[in-house]
Design a protein around this nucleic acid. Structure first.
Lengths: 97, 97
DNA sequence: CGGCATCCTGCAGGATACTG
DNA sequence: CAGTATCCTGCAGGATGCCG
């Protein structure tokens, strides 16, 4: 599967594993990403039904992103991957849940 | 991790999950790939110590590729991914081990 | 058989400015 | 705040051809 293609896809999914985040929060939660890339990534993930977008008609506008069932189902994958990374590179122990 | 970047990386690893394969066999095992891409992919995977290359000084030359310990350790990841894909797209049930 | 060398193209990805 | 629009660049990825 190349659903995981995209330089930022994994990071965004991972960030949302811990819970609901707003656009700006996501941007801060994924260091190095820029507005355009985040927008593009969340759009694709939304189309793929992996995350869901919930706009709030407030002023100023706020939008909340969260994982769908399908997205949450990726948790075992992320964990397996992380376990592998830790075991083989023992680095970055301080991430996610 | 962007070790899984590369359009063919996953497919090649997956193909080698079932056992040792020669260059040509790999090429046939990964439909759609071409010589240059396969060469590039195996080279990168070899550098990352995920697969190992074993040339045989025969005529004509043969080269065998297999997963290293590190590569085999990716099995849980692949399985989790596959389980997810099957559960969410129920397609391609007829692959690997 | 296994794989470099070469040439080519599109699009992923980056920076920055602007708007409802 | 949450994006969209614009512009730009490099390199992933595809199609051969050639050689030990």
């Amino acid at each position: 599967m190349d659903l995981l293609s995209g330089k930022w896809t994994m990071s965004v999914i991972n960030a949302l594993m811990s819970g609901v985040l707003r656009f700006g929060e996501l941007e801060r939660a994924v260091p190095g990403i820029n507005t355009r890339m985040l927008a593009r990534t969340v759009k694709e993930l939304e189309e793929r039904k992996i995350i869901s977008r919930k706009p709030h008609p407030t002023v100023p506008p706020t939008v909340e992103y969260s994982l769908t069932e399908k997205g949450l189902a990726l948790k075992p994958v992320m964990q397996a991957l992380q376990a592998w990374a830790v075991a083989n590179y023992h680095r970055a122990q301080a991430e996610q849940s």
